[in-house]
Design a protein around this nucleic acid. Structure first.
Lengths: 230, 230
DNA sequence: CCCTTTATGTACCTTGGGGTTAATTTGTCA
DNA sequence: TGACAAATTAACCCCAAGGTACATAAAGGG
């Protein structure tokens, strides 16, 4: 009460700084969480506005409408994940170790990027409508494929990899279990128990997946798991 | 115009049959498509009502509220898919052929059940909240695991399968690529092209997946694919 | 210093859509 | 045959939430 006293002007904001970039980032940050949590139609603009340090008005000022905000969020998480992929350097590793590293990194990246996973799930529900509209996302996707193609080429040249091995298929395969591991955890655990997500079990699972892929790619590969006799 | 003439009573429905079960089925059928297409918050009750041969009021009469309808839809698709799994009989096949068959059937089942896939995606967005509440779904999930456990036991007993092979992990793995293949088709194609979904390519992909799993499960398995020399 | 552009706050508008009320018809069983 | 429950219709309610109008303060330049 009694908000009308003069003083240093606490209650009624009589002055504020202009900081467009910070405001944009703030909105995008909160919106990412809300869209990831509730989906496009489920997210609430008023709720997003409430959590930011700015007002609903600014959301519309910077992003036009709800779909514009969603699109910006989507592009943001894609950019973040692809940047992480770019940081991964396997050029110095020999082919088998490099491939192992790429699979493990992809698996871990998915585990530690739940927002990304959820937004991709949501985007698939919308048949990738917004991803298709994006001008920036298509440019981001070469990096991981390039790396895999390089590793495959080196592996084949060294006579280590089977001739039919395909980088795109390998990426698809690696993505499939890495993505599913996070995306479908809730329903899988509910249906079949959460043993596979128990302490230590994820690492063992990853080891088996890596073994499995390597066994199908590398000629004469000796698996490390699923081979225990009893 | 002129809807008030007596006649056989076309305009104003002066008579209707009671058929609760048909009405329920009708609503559930339309609602399944709508929830699968737009998600829980995205689906529109008025639109569902419009497409049924009954009225919105009946939706609330039979299902209580939107969430009740969604829950019924979810249970419906689970029951349908699990029933299909029950029909699959591999007890008569020798272990390797049986496992091959189970993987192929799972893959195909996912391809031909897009509503199920989408509803599971949606349910995962909701952290399996409604699946957990379900009284009937948990009972449906034993069948596929039982089959896999039987095959694994027979395979191990015959000295064909590695000792570490685990039915739950196998199911997880088979589900992962089968599910991802459908669920993430839109974003994957947008990001990396739709080569893997082109004519004939899916069958080749499945063959490689089966090979890969069998190679990691069956001792001394000779793969059929990815082994072409050039 | 004033004028323009950019950025921000406050208050408001509009409607889509989830949910309900009340009345009517159908079927059934004493 | 008439009361009662179950099924159905039509019309209505109402508020959450996406979006906008308007005023105004900051920044920058001439």
């Amino acid at each position: 009460m009694d908000a009308s006293e003069g003083g240093a002007g606490q209650k009624r904001k009589t002055s504020w700084k202009k900081d467009p970039e910070a405001v944009r980032r703030d909105i995008l940050h909160i919106a990412t969480q809300e869209f990831a949590a509730h989906g496009l139609s489920g997210a609430n603009i008023n709720e997003i506005a409430r959590q930011t340090s700015t007002s609903k008005r600014m959301i519309y000022y910077y992003f036009g409408d709800k779909e514009g905000l969603y699109q910006a969020v989507l592009e943001g998480v894609y950019a973040t994940l692809r940047a992480r992929e770019d940081d991964l350097d396997v050029a110095g590793l020999e082919p088998v170790a490099a491939l192992r590293r790429l699979i493990e990194a992809t698996f871990e990246a998915h585990v530690t990027a739940p927002h990304f996973i959820r937004l991709v799930m949501i985007e698939n529900i919308h048949n990738a409508e917004y991803l298709r509209k994006s001008e920036i996302v298509p440019r981001l996707n070469r990096s991981i494929i390039d790396k895999l193609e390089d590793v495959c080429a080196r592996g084949k040249a060294a006579g280590l990899f089977r001739a039919g091995v395909d980088a795109l298929e390998l990426h698809w395969l690696t993505s499939s279990f890495s993505f599913y591991n996070v995306s479908n955890r809730a329903t899988f655990s509910t249906s079949f128990g959460n043993d596979l997500y128990a302490e230590g079990r994820q690492a063992a699972l990853l080891e088996r997946l890596v073994d499995m892929v390597l066994a199908s790619v590398v000629i004469g590969y000796e698996p490390r798991s699923w081979s225990a006799s009893v």
